[in-house]
Simulated scan of single mutants.
Amino acid sequence: MKKTMTFILIILAAVFVTMSVKRSRDKEEAAESYNELKAEMFTEASEEIPDTAVDVEEIEPEAIALSDDERAMVDGVKRLQKDNGDVQGYIMILDSDIEKDRLCNAAMKDEGVVLQYPVYQRKGNDQEALDYYLHHNGKGERESYPGCIFGDGAIDEEGNYLFDLDSDGNHVIAGHNMSVHRNKKENWMFGSLRYYEEPEYLEEHKNLVLVTDETVKYFTIVSYYQAEADDDFYNIHPETPEALSKFLSDKTGMEIETDDSVTLVACDDDTSNDAGRRYVIAISE
């Protein structure tokens, strides 16, 4: 009997080690693939971008003037979209002392940019479409892990995004918690959201940037909390600035007034059956 139990324990240990090695390898491969996407995002950006402004070539009076730095990043998103039309934009979280006119160069060099990934969103209101990038990489190849950073996927009856990154509203962006240890190497994807438990970390990493194929949007991270996976962030989409402000104020216990926000969501732990979630909330500047 003891020999049988020992044999079973050896087998279980071997399976555990094999799975751990595979997961670690998956993380490394994912990190490498996202480094390639980062290179494509910034491939044509100059090391020395002049600080001058150019107008977006649009007739609409609300056209936004972009700096050359911002234009280079917008063009980068367009390059990513040529490879995959599901790319909605590019998200970055920064050290809070990075100036806007240094952002492009900082992102290229990973200087003060603690998180940067393309954001994907699959069209479709069925569960398969909503969960597509939980299990697929940016090339559309099916993987059980680690998937991509992705939007909430909601679309209207005509197939248009309800909350694309260019529109105002609450943008729910989710990603796997690819972390095991409090170690920078082990905190890819949204693993670093755990650090926002510490007020000091939030204060030093509160700048969030969304780059789309049209513009660059700036947000300030204001709150972090943990809740269940079925939190109503997934189901409630406030349609007015007043409703959005009230919704976020109720969630955070803070007085918030905004017409545009981002909610980042990751699993509470690095396990496939984890029911908890980490929520990081940012509002427009």
Rank of each mutant, 00 (worst) to 15 (best):
V113N: 10
G140D: 00
K185F: 12
N105A: 13
P118K: 02
D166P: 02
Y120L: 07
S192Q: 11
G191W: 05
R194Y: 12
E157T: 13
F150D: 00
F190A: 02
P118A: 00
N137D: 12
L165H: 08
N183R: 13
K184I: 15
D101W: 06
H135S: 07
Y133V: 11
N177D: 14
Y117T: 00
G140T: 02
S96N: 04
P146A: 13
N125V: 02
D168I: 12
V113F: 13
K100A: 15
F150G: 00
E158W: 12
K109P: 09
C104D: 14
L165Q: 08
Y195C: 04
N105H: 11
A129K: 09
N125D: 02
S96Y: 06
V114A: 03
S144Q: 15
Y133W: 04
D166E: 09
L103D: 02
A129E: 09
Y132H: 04
Y195L: 14
Y145F: 08
C148E: 10
K184L: 15
S179A: 12
W188E: 13
E157A: 14
R194D: 12
A107K: 06
D97I: 07
L165D: 08
M108F: 08
C148L: 05
G191N: 07
G175E: 01
G153F: 01
A129N: 07
N160R: 10
D156W: 04
E141L: 05
I149D: 03
Q121H: 07
R182S: 15
R194P: 13
M178A: 10
I98M: 05
W188V: 13
I173Q: 01
K100W: 07
E158T: 11
A106M: 11
D126A: 02
E157S: 10
D152M: 01
C104M: 13
R182Y: 14
A174I: 14
G159H: 00
H181K: 08
K109C: 08
Q121N: 15
L162E: 06
E141G: 09
L115S: 01
